[in-house]
Design a protein around this nucleic acid. Sequence first.
DNA 1: TATGAATGAGCATTCATTCAT
DNA 2: TATGAATGAATGCTCATTCAT
Lengths: 206, 206, 206, 206
Amino acid sequence: MEHQIAELSPRKVPQQQRAQFTVDCILGAAESIIIKSGYDAATTNHIAEVAGVSIGSLYQYFSSKEAIAAALVENAVSKATEVLRECILANMGKPLPEAIRTIIAVILETRREHNFIFMLLPRQVPKLGRLSRSVTTEKFLYNTVRTFYHQHRDEIMVEDLEIAMFVAQHLVVGSIDAYLEDNTILITDEQLVDHIADAVVKYLTK
Amino acid sequence: MEHQIAELSPRKVPQQQRAQFTVDCILGAAESIIIKSGYDAATTNHIAEVAGVSIGSLYQYFSSKEAIAAALVENAVSKATEVLRECILANMGKPLPEAIRTIIAVILETRREHNFIFMLLPRQVPKLGRLSRSVTTEKFLYNTVRTFYHQHRDEIMVEDLEIAMFVAQHLVVGSIDAYLEDNTILITDEQLVDHIADAVVKYLTK
Amino acid sequence: MEHQIAELSPRKVPQQQRAQFTVDCILGAAESIIIKSGYDAATTNHIAEVAGVSIGSLYQYFSSKEAIAAALVENAVSKATEVLRECILANMGKPLPEAIRTIIAVILETRREHNFIFMLLPRQVPKLGRLSRSVTTEKFLYNTVRTFYHQHRDEIMVEDLEIAMFVAQHLVVGSIDAYLEDNTILITDEQLVDHIADAVVKYLTK
Amino acid sequence: MEHQIAELSPRKVPQQQRAQFTVDCILGAAESIIIKSGYDAATTNHIAEVAGVSIGSLYQYFSSKEAIAAALVENAVSKATEVLRECILANMGKPLPEAIRTIIAVILETRREHNFIFMLLPRQVPKLGRLSRSVTTEKFLYNTVRTFYHQHRDEIMVEDLEIAMFVAQHLVVGSIDAYLEDNTILITDEQLVDHIADAVVKYLTK
DNA sequence: TATGAATGAGCATTCATTCAT
DNA sequence: TATGAATGAATGCTCATTCAT
């Protein structure tokens, strides 16, 4: 993870099993509190308390509150990236429309799962700041995605592939995030995925 | 704008000219500080100082720090909405592709202008919360947009117009926001607008 | 009223009728707010607003917030003192038990009427402080009361009249104030007055 | 003392000796400052400073400024109640006049010792409000006092014992408090106690 | 005289972080 | 290593009071 800011990386790598457990407790507590009440409301003392750990121990594994948030985002990004990469690889051979629909469905799933951590937390943590949008899904997967696009180069009508990748990606992610944020909306998952896939395919192939 | 949370509305309406000037100074100072250093770094005392106004005066017109942020967002939304509405109305009669391209260009402009206030501030202010994404551009313009779509109903191939509106909108806004946030990207405004317009038109008409 | 602290006396004596009306409005507003919400909650701005007067005007007639409180107490004390003095004078000729009972009943009435202003306000206003208990009823009436006692000197068995006056007075006032403060108590006005009168008479005459 | 308002109860129970010491320092500092300058003048920062403790520590043990006042009153009440109860029990067997005189002398002592905390502080702290007069000495001791009265039932001439208890109690406390507040008075402790005892005994037995 | 905009010292309180035990 | 007591800079906000208009 070379993209991380040094200052935010874990203070020491937990070597014993017990230590790893402590770290997990802290992250678990932090996640649940942050999701429930937001980043500002999640005081380090409260996180430690919920984690069943002393505040002193918390600071033994995380150098600052921001480091906890960073780890949370990092974890979510890693998991989501891995899932997505596998999904793309698994669909390399399939016809473009089908592959794209499947991939979009997976993106919807992972973003729903890590909703808050993914989309809102980074904005609330000053030092994480703009980091996330670029560090996340996008950059990590660029090569995989590019490979996928090249695989279907002959079907794709858009000339500049880089721009196409950019627009297509944010078409997908922008719609999905808006969908997840707006709980008054009257659209089903199915409909959303269909429409987004439709838009992407038309954009790339017509 | 009756959608505002009561608690965040201005404390008292400035009646004298001097008072209005004070309010303007406060909002100006707040905006510049928040843009430069973020919401948390913008302390009310600092805002007052930069505004050349006493902290007491600040609190005479804004009941809380959050109320200042709310006013800032409110202003930006109002202006952007107005610009966009006029643009849509002015392009009602034009052919779809041309109209859409023009509208997208205007959206890029307004979002660039109010970039931070629009997109990041709301996330950093707890009580503004999720409000913004829905309260903003989207909801306010739905009727105008819907009229525009109906104007071109025969050209549009997508069956469910509501879903089309949703996807098209976030296709546009999602891409533009990502573009504005990512200052490492190698795409020009022109290219971006062209591609987004291309994607929207294809999505709607093919 | 030579006992007043100079600093707390009214800033200027209202000479015109309109001015007197303004002063009355201010005192009225202050009283109702203070009774409802306490002295600290009664901000000068709020008092002015309820009085229908600008804050500037308020400060034209009262040099400080404390001066308003002082005026309030002063008024209540004056009225109560006057009532009490008249009552004592009117009962000079009557037999001791009957006179005392009547006087105690009147004290109950006046203290009930000016309850808060009388008993609690002084404690909440630093500069009024200890003032009140001594400045109030007691001192003002000492001469009248002493005359009354001398009138009945032959019936009174207590040697030291000064001490008797002190104890008798606080016997009465202490019980009445406690009675007025405790609204869970199951005693009627009649019973209370009877018992207090009984205690005083026994104390003085047996 | 379950009569306390939950909100005002201590934030966390000091577990280590060092912590208990801190709490004691805070209460000590608070008491001396409040007695010297009143509740409003006693800022939390000043209390912490005088206590030789950081403001953070203060808030670790007391949830608010009011909670400190509550603890102070609570302590004073506890001590005074205990002393009084023991005194009454110790005098159960003695003849009424002697017992009453002793008890009154003890009340004078305890009230003098906790003078301010007891009598004035509660009035200055909004949330403590009326609480004190009822919660204090009176209510807590009612049963003990009643037992004492019943012990001497045959000597007591007053029919309604409840009313007698009420009047007698406030006769005593009212006079004592007035005596303690008025430092211009020319009465000795001895004289005061004698007269009050005299009044009570006459009231109850004649 | 009346107005109300402006003032600013001062307060209660929070919370990330440290360090003695 | 773990604990949790202690720290204190920093913040949002109030309100009595002044003064230009």
